[in-house]
């Protein structure tokens, strides 16, 4: 039994210490956002934030997470109250199949938290780890820029995500 702090909540997890965080999130905590893509640290679809940093959850065993704070996409905001980065991805319609998107968003979120105004180059370099097969890259880049702007205007604290604006449908680009 180990205590794992995910999205601000403590969870008692009964899994071997070598279990990758990804499986704990999906299997034990029933969270959907972090995705299995390769399990080898090659694609980024399992990216979550640990103590502010983007981390590949498929190669991060439970035993590294003692006393750390894990944030997944679920912890940023919800469908009803999307966080700035979520709003940005919706507004830019930055998904095709969307399977890679949660990982992209988490890595981008970590970048924006330490650098609210990244250049295009910086975003590309940061997202280099993450693969997208559908070719949604152009929109992802736009969405990250937009998220940066939104985070500056909106309440940027990720956990609250209490954005109340008109329907998203009205704000298509």
């Amino acid at each position: 039994m180990m205590t794992l702090k995910v999205n601000g909540q403590d969870h008692q997890v009964d899994a071997d210490p070598d279990t990758p965080l990804l499986y704990v999130l999906r299997d034990d905590l029933k969270l959907n956002a972090a995705k299995f893509g390769c399990g080898l640290g090659q694609c980024g679809s399992c990216t979550v934030i640990v103590d502010g940093k983007a981390v590949l959850s498929c190669v991060t065993p439970l035993l590294l997470l003692e006393g750390k704070k894990v944030t997944t996409l679920e912890g940023l905001g919800s469908i009803e109250a999307p966080a700035p980065i979520q709003r940005a991805f919706i507004e830019e319609q930055a998904a095709q199949c969307g399977y890679c998107i949660a990982g992209m968003m988490m890595r981008a979120q970590a970048l924006l938290q330490r650098n609210p105004k990244p250049t295009d180059e910086q975003i590309r370099a940061e997202l280099e780890i993450n693969l997208c097969r559908c070719g949604t890259h152009m929109r992802i880049l736009r969405a990250v820029h937009r998220a940066g702007r939104l985070m500056q205007t909106a309440d940027a604290s990720p956990a609250k995500g209490s954005i109340q604006e008109g329907s998203i449908q009205g704000s298509m680009p």
């Binding site: 996409l73 679920e74 469908i79 979520q86 919706i90 319609q93 998904a95 969307g98």
Partner: peptide
């Protein structure tokens, strides 16, 4: 007209989408 895709909100918030 451009309509936001109905599947995207769940996909970007960790809903059961897949």
């Amino acid at each position: 007209r451009p309509v936001p895709r109905v599947d995207i909100p769940a996909k970007v918030t960790g809903g059961a989408a897949y």
